[in-house]
Design a protein around this nucleic acid. Structure first.
Lengths: 281, 281
DNA sequence: TCAATCCTGTAATTTTTATTACATATCGGC
DNA sequence: GCCGATATGTAATAAAAATTACAGGATTGA
């Protein structure tokens, strides 16, 4: 698991100061993580030992150890998709990457057809309601998309939360959900029963559910206010989540444009925080 | 100009040890440049002060200054595909053949940018030296290009040999290589260890190596006098060798023009041999 | 062939960065 | 409300990295 994903996954379990480190790292990925401990600490508004505690909690022996892995991640990420496929998989009779990219392109086009504009707009309305909180959660493979979407949405609107930690803590976190709140759930084939159960409990607490799922529709669809079906077919045993990510980003972009003034003010506030903390400025 | 392009442009003007630094940097971009001076020096087989001279020649005040800019480059290069799509406009649909041809054209244009004229001229100088023999060899897929180039060059100049047969006979054929001879090697990604080893042995025998490789540079680049990087990207699972073949033909053409009189005489001699040697005429 | 200039690597020194020790604050449980 | 555990930042120390000084080799031009 790459460091960026690892940090995103760990966000909810981090103590306050370390969470600040994590946010600063993700917001300035990867350059700040390749700079010094002092620069990352200053950007986050904490201290050098806190940075060291942060990387230790992620399982690294030292900051140089952390940076070594980060450089490897960055090197891999800079390879084009074609290069990435070549370096990790064997050559097949069927040009795998061409088929894969063709498959992704087809999925995106099919998804475009499968999602009604009215449903998309309804989803945007849910996400634009600042009076209610937004809670995010996904399944085994899609939760990273939920976290990603929450992290972006948090920049442009308040009261965004992502369910985190073990499934056993979901019930505890449920206590923070108020009537009228929005819950954005990601669930594709091999539906998780604990996620389905949570959906039922959310509805019991009168939350409004936005479900992002596959064309066969997760059981959560029964309880959802809005359902966005995404085509996930790929010529392999596991599903592609590209279309879900694409829909997530489309939603973020759409919501951002719809409330550009409020979003801009929030981004400015964010920049002010960073601005005043940087030495020499 | 990003650092990578800046280094590529400066290649021809760098002294020997600094050129080694440049090759090591490009071959392991960007992670080695984000590591320590000692690691880059060790990888290149030179020293720490040489690394400092290298970055100073590129116009940086210090190594931390160089790394600061490199982090900025990497951050820009890692922008998400969606952001990149937004910044460059929507993708247009193309017929498969048109797309393929466009890709090849793009590769050739990129290769044109990647190969400095000074390096190309240096390669021609090596191939034009009639006092020394020219030996050719390529890897699994590129040896056919090596054979093709040897066959053509043999027509216009003497002492051209192509390593042939099983890899087990390469060592025997090595006996024919004299100090000062030129070895033209083709090696692209999935570098062959036996070819890399042969390169080392060739340098031990004081042969001068001309390497034709991909932009990530075969390990043979460390021992090569001249390196010509060819862009091999294509929208399929195997590397395109079109650009290597194009570079080979360009070299043949250039060498042929430079010694048109000698080449013409040799061609005539060749024709005479064919003409008078056949019995029954 | 010789001298001047440039290139290069080793070793020492300086600077910067990472890490640790310690004291204080905060939070949660009883 | 108190106590123990956890979190946190400051300051000092240790380690690592960058830089400089210097000597020798190579190359080029006269």
């Amino acid at each position: 698991m790459a460091i960026r994903e690892q940090v995103q996954a760990a966000l909810g379990t981090l103590p306050g100061a370390e969470k600040k480190i994590a946010h600063a790292f993700l917001a300035n990925y990867p350059s700040i993580g390749l700079s010094t401990i002092a620069e990352l600490a200053a950007l986050a508004g904490t201290s050098a030992p806190t940075v060291l505690r942060f990387v230790a909690r992620l399982g690294f022996e030292s900051y140089p150890d952390f940076q070594r892995v980060l450089r490897t991640d960055v090197q891999a990420q800079l390879m084009s998709p074609l290069e990435r496929a070549r370096s990790t998989g064997p050559v097949t009779d069927n040009p795998a990457l061409k088929a894969s990219f063709a498959s992704i392109a087809a999925n995106l086009e099919a998804t475009l057809k499968a999602v009604p504009e009215s449903e998309f707009e309804a989803a945007c309305d849910l996400l634009s309601d600042h009076k209610s909180a937004c809670h995010f959660l996904g399944g085994r493979f899609t939760d990273s998309i939920a976290a990603y979407m929450a992290a972006h949405l948090r920049i442009i609107r308040p009261n965004v939360r992502h369910f985190d930690g073990q499934t056993s803590t979901w019930r505890d976190q449920l206590l923070d959900v108020r009537p009228g709140d929005v819950a954005v759930l990601f669930d594709i084939r091999r539906y998780q029963s604990d996620l389905v159960r949570l959906g039922e409990l959310l509805v019991e607490r009168k939350a409004r559910i936005l479900l992002i799922t596959d064309p066969w529709l997760s059981p959560i669809a029964r309880s959802a206010r809005v359902v966005l079906p995404c085509v996930v077919d790929a010529n392999r045993t596991w599903d592609s989540s590209i279309t879900l990510m694409a829909v997530a980003e489309a939603l973020i972009d759409r919501v951002s444009r719809a409330q550009s003034e409020a979003a801009r003010a929030r981004m400015q506030a964010l920049e002010d925080i960073h601005w005043n903390n940087l030495p020499g400025r």
